[in-house]
Design a protein around this nucleic acid. Sequence first.
RNA 1: GUGGUUGUAGCUCAGUUGGUUAGAGUGCUUGAUUGUGGUUCAAGAGGUCGCCGGUUCGAACCCGGUCUUCCACCCCA
Length: 449
Amino acid sequence: MNKISTNSPKGTRDFLPVQTKRRQWIFDQLKSVFESHAYVPIETPAMENLSTLMGKYGEEGDRLIFKILNSGDYLRKADEQSLQAKDSNKLISSISEKALRYDLTVPFARYVVAHQNDLSFPFKRYQIQPVWRADRPQKGRYREFYQCDVDVIGSTGLWSEVELVGMIHKGFSKLGLEGVVVKVNHRKILAGMVEVIGKADMLIPITVAIDKIDKIGMEGVQKELLEKGLTENEIKMLKPMLEGNNDLSSMRDFLSSSEIGMEGLNELEFLLNNCAKLNFDLQVDCSLARGLNYYTGAILEVVHPDFPSSICGGGRYDDLTGIFGLPNVSGVGISFGADRIYDLLEAKNLFPSSLKESVDLLFLNMGDEEASLALQLSSELMDAGFSCMLYPDNKNFKKQMKYANELGVKKVLIIGTEELTNSEVSIKDMESGEQIRVSQKDLIKTLKS
RNA sequence: GUGGUUGUAGCUCAGUUGGUUAGAGUGCUUGAUUGUGGUUCAAGAGGUCGCCGGUUCGAACCCGGUCUUCCACCCCA
């Protein structure tokens, strides 16, 4: 018989009990922040229609969407021409009409349009669910990972951005993570920037290039921009902006001829001023671009010096619902990358020690009559607040003790023949090794003291 | 999608220039102790050396392919 591999698919992981407890703790912390800010939970399906997702994340994004094969004899219905030509891209639409969701924002936009009559706007929702990307796995990058999204939709008020920045700080402080840097930029500033140099049509490639300035330096960015078709002169014009140390007044000088750029700058200033009043730390970074194509206003990203990639990100999108038939609805939101946050907390040893798996009490199984009594007593112990179990098999003593030890049980309770006839229970403290015998009616009192 | 890297006992890893029967630590089973775990001692079980093919008298070791792991790029939480 062939052994079937026990590997989970590339880029996906199983979680042991401790890991699961820690992950749930992260979700719980964020949830409490979201709910205290009056966001409500929703869920959407793991899969979406392929047409809902395609084209929303750029060309690269389309490639990273996991497509689901149609049911049945899908090849019979496949497009003959593209099948013959082995043209995968063209073939897909005829053999796949569903896909795993790539993020939570686009499905949310669909959701908002679908349920617009049942929602009150502005609608504030949070959503903690897994998403899937067909990326090559590496550090901090998985094919299945959880996003924790918070969005406000149906409002253009910049106070939402202020609130979100506050929630970022609150969230990471609840997680016990110090040293996060919240970076901000504005898509309209980037638009103004390319307008000033007369390359408005190249917004995306230019922003993608300058986004890498931290990584590859000014020279690397220049090289990439040259490759993308900018002239030396145009790059020279950009330079003061990028080297301007993110100083608002120099940005104002640079953008003065661009209406949209000035608009962005004013909005950014509003955000900065109001965050400053509330002591929400925020750093302007005019090289921050963020790849997702749908952002139109402020863009946010959270990084930590001990982690290579961003642990949270988001921004404002003005017309995501438009493609689903509901125009002129603006939204803004952020997404916490739970798996990256987990890796970072793990590396920095920041998980509370209370998150270990533990059982308060374990009854040894010494026979049917004894076990039956143990279950009666454990029901009372559970009501009294203890976590409590009976060893399910009447195996030898040693084995049961060993199990108790492995589980980290605090106290082992023993009812054998002697205890049974005397209406007693032996209590063994697993840490000290001490053992006492008490009457059954004093059991709870003794354990609580 | 591009480039590199990794794979040997349940786990962590040694394994010499290609040479007889592939090792250690830990874990596991049993016993010392049939009502006492975590410590100690003794014995034992456990391997198609990721998989497929090639070179060779001979391959864990060399070559090709494939899968897996991790890393970088692209891109991103």
